[in-house]
Structures are given as C-alpha cells and as structure tokens.
Nucleic acid binder design. Sequence first.
DNA 1: CAATCGTGGGA
DNA 2: TTCCCAAGATT
Length: 357
Amino acid sequence: MTNKEHLLEKYGIEMWSDEKIIAFRKALLDWYDQEGRDHLPWRLNKDPYRIWVSEIMLQQTQVKTVIPYFLRFVSLFPSVQALAEADEEVLLKAWEGLGYYSRVRNMQVAAQQIMTEYNGVFPDKPEDIIQLKGIGPYTSGAIASMAFGLPEPAVDGNVMRVFSRLFEIGEDIAKPATRKLFELLVRIVIDPDRPGDFNQAIMDLGTDICGPVNPRPEESPIREFNAAYKNGTMALYPFKSKAKKPVPIDLHGLVVRQGDAYLMEKRPTGGLLGDFWTFPLVDTVTEENKIGSFKHVFSHRRWQVTVHLLEDETNFTPEENMKWVLEEEFADYAFAVPQQKMWEIVRKYDEKKYKSL
DNA sequence: CAATCGTGGGA
DNA sequence: TTCCCAAGATT
C-alpha cells in the first residue's frame, strides 16, 4: 500500500475512478471558461511577478479590497528589481491600510533574493519558489500552477471548503496538519493540462456558489460530484474549530504637539504594526487631557484607546524611537488604521475648537 | 503545534 | 454587539 492510499484510508476517503476524475475536470473547467472571473487584473497575463504580488495581497484579504492596492502597487513597482530597490517608507506607504504588514517587508526580502540568487528572473521550480521569504505552501503552488503551468496544489480556505464537501471530510480545517490531506486530494484530481485554471476555478467556485455562508450547491457545476450535497450533510462541512477571542487591552494615545510638529514613534520591526508610525501609545498616563477615544480590533487583540492632547507645557519625555514630524510631512509616513483614527480625533477636536472661537 | 499578525464587511 | 469571515506565513 502506498503512502497516498494509506492516508486516504486513514481518513476514510474513497477516491474517485479515473473516469469520474476526468468528468469532474471537464465540468469544472467548462464552467470556469463560461463563468470564471477573467476580469481580475492579475489574470491579464501570466507574469509571475504580478501573480506573486496578487497572491501575497490576497492572503486573508478579499478580492474587492485587493484590486486598488494591486493596481497601485504594480504601477509603483513594476518589476522584481523595482521592488527589490524600493525605498522602505514608500513601500510601506503602498501597503498602508491593507494589514498583515510583514507581508510587504517579506516580499521585498524575496525580491532581493530573486535578484541575487536568480539574476532577477523569477524561479520556476516549486522547491525554489517556496524558499522565498513570505511564500508558503499555498502561494508557492499558486504561482507554480498559474504562472508556470505546473500541476501543483494551491490549498487555501476555498479549496479546503470545496473539497471537504465533495468528499465529506470532517477534519478540522483550522489545524495546520489538515492542509496536507487536501494537497494530496488536489494532486490526484488536478487537471495536468490546465493546473492553474483548475486551482483558480476551485477558488472562484468557493467564493460564491460554494461559499462559507449560504452556499447554493444546487447551482454548482460540480453538484453531481458533491457527496455532502447528495447526502444532505452540507451543514457539517467544513468543520472549523473556533478561534480564540481577542484579548482586551487599554491604551492611551498621546498627541504631543508643539506648533505644527507632532511627536511620532516608529513601532519596532516584527511586532504588531511593525515599522509603522503612530502617536506614542502607552499603558498609563500621568498627564491627562482626553479629547476622544476609539476601539480597534485585531485578530488577537482588542484595543480600547483613550486619546490625549498634550500641548506646549507638557513634560512628556521623548524616547529613542521617536521624532518630531510636521503635519505637512504626514503624507510621507506610513500610518496604519489606529493612527488614522487618532489623527481623525485630533482633526475633529481642532475643527470644533476653531468654530467656537 | 499554537500564537502572532490587520482590516473591513456581513449576518 | 458580537461573531465569523477573506486567495496564509512565520516562529
């Protein structure tokens, strides 16, 4: 017994016959040719650079959100070389508001890897692609199949959802180990003649017809292959264990202002909002002059921030990672959303004060 | 493996 | 309000 058969048996999965696999590919790809989203800007051609940029942006992020960022990004940095040589602040600015900011820093490291190790030419072997910083199993498979036509699985949440219903697989898709099972299934079922289209077709299907909420399996081009649909067990799949709740954290944002200059702090590389600029955020305050508050929810943290305005006579002591920045220079600094919320509170406070004078 | 790392939108 | 969700990778 082969490893593959052993794994399938372990999870009680009966693989389809060769005839059924071929029929599945045809049903899926015929639908994709008619209904697939061929308008997405990263499907314009098979440029591995553009596909790479899109796949990084699309990690945990919706298509609708990504499109404007993608167009701006490939315009600012049209090539691997341009990205490798990009100024850090300009680069972060291009990602501002998109979230998961280590993605863009990792991408620049990978671009520099490609310049030095591959002479600027995007590597076309899966074992090389996955060595690039920020590229894991999913993104590697996506690039290999879509840009280079290799029969590699690209298993994301869509693929696990679709396949868990097709084969009635109850494994917890939140667990890292589960992905390997789905990679095996995709390796067996993927169309060797159109692997990129196959992977994208599954994802297009998983976005709408086979979505996480209110799926419409009766409209699916592959409903005849859907064991959960035929057995009336759609509601059971996929199984996903619940995420932990974000931890509540109280913070104080200190808007230290002298004339048009504001004290800004650069957050440490690698951490939350790493390398982005904010008004100083502290746990406790000695001086208090509240002008507003807001909350901001991350995946694992819930910030409740009280904003204070400290002007002129403040005795706040700047630290090493801080500097004075003029308001007119703000456009040159990368601000994540919490900083934009703080700035909005300051603007409204000043506006109200101005009107009352 | 489990924790970390954003943000916006919909039910 | 609260919860869940979206084309995951790193440590």
